[in-house]
Amino acid sequence: MMSENAINGALTKCIVWFYDGNSRTFYSRDKSHKSAKPNMALGIRRLEKMLLETFKGKWETAIIYVNKNNGEEIAKYKKGVRV
């Protein structure tokens, strides 16, 4: 579980709908080390790796958004393929 500061500091988030009917929100880890500046591309790559390797075959739909209210959609995936 991430701390409130880590959630608020994340640049992107990913909402995942699993085959079992559950859904979860994951937040990006945008820093390579503690004192580094946040890097959105790094965070997105880490979210994609989580989807395509860690949860491979367990989810139906996933959408990556900018971590703001009404944030812009960055990427959408269906059954392991980016659409």
Rank of each mutant, 00 (worst) to 15 (best):
M1K: 02
M1V: 06
M2V: 02
E4A: 00
E4H: 09
E4M: 03
N5R: 00
N5I: 04
N5S: 05
A6D: 09
A6G: 07
A6T: 08
I7R: 06
I7Q: 00
N8R: 14
G9H: 02
L11K: 09
K13F: 01
K13T: 03
C14Y: 00
C14A: 10
C14G: 02
C14M: 12
C14W: 05
F18I: 10
S23A: 12
S23V: 01
T25D: 08
T25I: 13
Y27H: 10
S28D: 01
R29H: 09
R29K: 15
D30F: 07
K31C: 13
S32T: 07
H33E: 09
K34C: 01
K34W: 01
A36F: 07
K37I: 14
P38C: 06
N39A: 10
M40T: 06
A41K: 09
A41W: 07
L42G: 04
R45P: 03
R45G: 13
R45Y: 10
L47G: 13
E48I: 09
K49T: 15
M50T: 12
M50H: 11
L52Y: 08
L52F: 05
E53H: 12
F55V: 07
F55G: 01
K56S: 08
G57I: 03
K58H: 13
K58Y: 15
W59F: 11
W59R: 14
W59Q: 15
W59A: 13
E60L: 12
E60D: 12
E60H: 11
A62L: 15
Y65D: 10
V66H: 08
K68D: 02
N70F: 11
N70R: 09
I74R: 04
K76I: 04
Y77T: 11
K79C: 08
G80W: 09
V81E: 13
R82S: 10
V83M: 14
